[in-house]
């Protein structure tokens, strides 16, 4: 008789239980279940939580997951460099990624060099989407893994294959990517408008 059954029978019969439940043993047998060990479904589940992929069905996410490449990066490793040709779009599966722009900024007072840090991305964030759309896309920023991270990459060849084999999924994916790009463009346009307004007010102030 299994340990689990033995305990549950004791509970049914209101018999006294052993002082200490062998949780570790239970856990071991529970986890050694062959179905539990595999994390087959974890990537589709991860994709489900990404906002821009919400128009995908479960099955479509499962297929999309087959075309993604899980890449592991160590702490401080560069994912890509600014100005490099890029063909990949990345989702952050775990860990953090720093996006850095431009030359290193030197702090005059301390002499410490610091790169022009823009943003730190975390789990469920994504970056590099322009690489999928542009013909010869050069990276606008440098991406550096902070403390090591796992990324799910989708590359131009994968998109080509998706278009060939699963046109519907490819259309949905490109829709999502254009959604990301459109959102960025929208916020950029607003920012430009604000800056223009600021400049014009500054010019007015200077002339008056």
């Amino acid at each position: 008789m299994s340990y689990e059954k033995e305990i549950s029978e004791k509970i049914d019969k209101n018999e006294p239980l052993p002082e200490k439940l062998e949780i570790s043993v239970l856990k071991y047998f529970w986890q050694s279940n062959p179905i539990m060990g595999k994390k087959v479904d974890s990537i589709p589940k991860f994709l489900r939580k990404i906002e821009v992929l919400k128009n995908f069905t479960e099955n479509e996410l499962r297929i999309l997951a087959k075309f993604l490449h899980l890449r592991k990066f160590n702490a401080g490793e560069r994912i890509f460099n600014q100005g490099e040709l890029g063909v990949g779009f990345y989702f952050i599966y775990s860990g953090y990624t720093d996006l850095v722009v431009g030359e290193e900024i030197k702090n005059e007072a301390t002499g410490e060099r610091k790169p022009g840090h823009i943003i730190t991305l975390e789990k469920y964030d994504y970056f590099g989407e322009l690489a999928l759309l542009q013909q010869n896309s050069t990276r606008n920023a440098t991406a550096i893994s902070r403390q090591g991270c796992d990324l799910l990459g989708l590359f131009k060849p994968d998109v080509d294959q998706l278009i060939n084999i699963y046109p519907l999924i490819a259309a949905k994916l490109l829709q999502s990517v254009s959604l990301i790009v459109a959102n960025r463009l929208f916020s950029l346009t607003r920012e430009v408008q604000e800056l223009k307004y600021k400049i014009s007010t500054m010019e007015n102030n200077a002339s008056s």
């Binding site: 890449r71 560069r78 890029g86 063909v87 060849p157």
Partner: peptide, 8 residues
């Protein structure tokens, strides 16, 4: 990693 994108 460093050559992945280009190689692929």
């Amino acid at each position: 990693n460093s050559v992945f994108e280009r190689f692929y």
